[in-house]
Nucleic acid binder design. Structure first.
Length: 383
DNA sequence: AACCGCTTTCGTG
DNA sequence: TTACGCACGAAAGCGGTT
C-alpha cells in the first residue's frame, strides 16, 4: 500500500495575525489579544510579544507587567471565524479539510502527488496562497501520521514547514523531547521525570507493561506508542459523553444567593437553547463552584429521564447549589453543565416522559424559536 | 465481575 | 513575588448494584 501523507496546518498567532492584517500599523509590534484587568487571561499574542515571555493563558496583569508597551486588544471572535473560513476554503482546494479548531486543520493528502505534486510543493503553494490572498502566515507539518504531522507543524513556527519522512519518525520524536510530545502535559512530564525518564529514548528502554503499571493502562500504552513514534490516537471511537457547559468567573467574588440564582437562571436558559440548537438531550446536570481560595468542586445528579426544559435545569441547579454552598460563602466562579447528552430530540420514545412534560418542552422550544432574547441576562461578569 | 454514578484531575486550543 | 478564563473530552478511583 502506498505511503500515507498527512498535513497539519496551524495558523500562526492567529487572533493577533488577524488584528495585524486588519490594521497593518500594528505590524512588528507586541500585540496581545486579551481583555485587560484582573481575572482575565491572554488568548494569543504576536511573536514580538512572545519575546517578552508573554504567552497564551497567562493572566493579563502579568502580561502587562512583562510587556508594558504591549498593545492589548479585546478578542473579536466573529471576525476570526470569518477569516478562518476563508483560509479553510483555500485549503479545501487541495483536499478534504478536517478542521479541529478555529486555527487548525489536518488533511489526508495520501495519493495526491500525481494530482498536485510533491507534498512539500503543495504545502508551499498553500502557504503562498494564504499569505497572498488572506495576508497571514501559517505553519505546516507533513508526516505519515496525523500525530507526527501535528508536532511537525509546531517545530518551525511561525511561517514554518516541516516534513518528517517516515524513516526519521523516531529521530523526530527524540529531537523534540518528552516535553513537546502531544498528550504529555505539565503533570505527566513531572510524573515521568520523577521516575527518571527524561527523554523519549529513556521511555523506549522500558517494556509497555511496565509503563502501564507505572502510569496506568491508558497513559502507559500512550507513552509507549508515542515514544516509539507510533500514532497513539484512536480514530475509531464514536464520540460519546457529549456535554454542554458554561461557566463564569466573577469580577468580584459573589456571596449572595439571589445573585447566584440569577446567574444560574441565565445559564439554564443558555444551556437549554444550546441543547435545542444541537438537538441533544441530557440526563445529567452538573454544577461547578470555585471558592475564593481557588478550591474547586463539582456536583452532579442524573435523572431517570431527560432534561426537558429550562425549569428542570434551573431547579436542579439550585438544588445542587444548596448541597454545596451556604449563604455568605464567597464564590469566585460558577458553572453549569448538561452531561450524558444524546443526539436526537427524543432518543427514547415517549413513555419515559409524561404528556405534560412533552408539552412543556414543546413550549420551551417554541419560545426558543421566537428567539426571545430580550430577557437575556447581563453577562455574569458585569454583575 | 461488570456496570453505573459521582468526583477529581489532566490535556488541548 | 503577584497572578491564574472557558469549553470540551478522557480517564482514574471510589462506592454501590445487579
Amino acid at each position: 500500500m502506498a505511503q500515507k501523507v498527512f498535513f497539519h496546518v496551524d495558523l500562526d498567532a492567529f487572533f493577533a495575525s488577524v488584528e495585524i492584517k486588519d490594521n497593518p500599523s500594528l505590524k512588528g509590534k507586541p500585540v496581545i489579544i486579551a481583555e485587560e484587568g484582573p481575572r482575565c487571561v491572554v488568548s494569543t499574542c504576536s511573536y514580538e510579544a512572545r519575546a517578552f515571555k508573554v504567552h497564551s493563558a497567562m493572566p493579563s496583569v502579568q502580561a502587562r507587567r512583562l510587556c508594558p508597551d504591549g498593545i492589548f486588544i479585546s478578542p473579536r471572535h466573529k471576525r476570526y471565524s470569518e477569516v478562518s473560513r476563508q483560509v479553510m476554503a483555500i485549503l479545501s482546494d487541495y483536499g478534504v479539510v478536517n478542521q479541529v479548531s478555529i486555527d487548525e486543520a489536518w488533511l489526508d493528502m495520501s495519493g495526491t502527488e500525481r494530482l498536485f505534486g510533491k507534498p512539500k510543493d503543495i504545502a508551499l503553494a498553500m502557504k503562498k496562497r494564504v499569505r497572498d490572498e488572506i495576508g497571514i502566515t501559517m505553519s505546516v507539518g507533513i508526516a505519515s501520521s496525523p500525530f507526527i504531522a501535528k508536532m511537525a507543524s509546531d517545530y518551525n513556527k511561525p511561517d514554518g514547514l516541516c516534513l518528517v519522512s517516515p524513516s526519521r519518525n523516531l529521530m523526530f520524536i527524540d529531537a523534540i523531547g518528552l516535553e513537546n510530545i502531544q498528550g504529555i502535559g505539565k503533570s505527566s512530564l513531572k510524573a515521568l521525570n520523577d521516575r527518571g525518564f527524561r527523554t523519549p529514548s529513556d521511555v523506549r528502554q522500558v517494556p509497555e507493561d511496565v509503563l502501564i503499571r507505572m502510569f496506568g493502562s491508558s497513559m502507559g500504552s500512550y507513552l509507549h506508542k508515542a515514544c516509539n513514534a507510533v500514532d497513539p490516537w484512536d480514530y475509531t471511537g464514536e464520540i460519546k459523553n457529549h456535554s454542554i457547559s458554561t461557566e463564569t468567573t466573577f469580577l468580584n467574588d459573589v456571596s449572595d444567593g439571589q445573585t447566584l440564582r440569577q446567574v444560574l437562571m441565565g445559564m439554564s436558559h443558555e444551556l437549554f437553547n444550546r441543547s435545542i440548537e444541537q438537538s441533544v438531550m441530557a440526563r445529567t446536570i452538573g454544577l461547578k463552584l470555585r471558592f475564593s481560595d481557588f478550591h474547586t468542586i463539582t456536583v452532579q445528579s442524573s435523572s431517570d429521564g431527560f432534561v426537558l426544559n429550562v425549569d428542570c435545569i434551573f431547579e436542579n441547579a439550585v438544588r445542587l447549589l444548596s448541597i454545596k454552598w451556604s449563604e455568605g460563602v464567597p464564590i469566585r466562579l460558577i458553572g453549569l453543565g448538561l452531561y450524558q447528552t444524546y443526539s436526537g430530540d427524543s432518543p427514547i420514545q415517549d413513555s419515559l416522559f409524561s404528556e405534560a412534560e412533552h408539552r412543556k418542552r414543546k413550549l420551551d422550544k417554541a419560545v426558543h424559536g421566537l428567539s426571545v432574547k430580550g430577557v437575556k441576562l447581563r453577562k455574569a461578569s458585569e454583575l
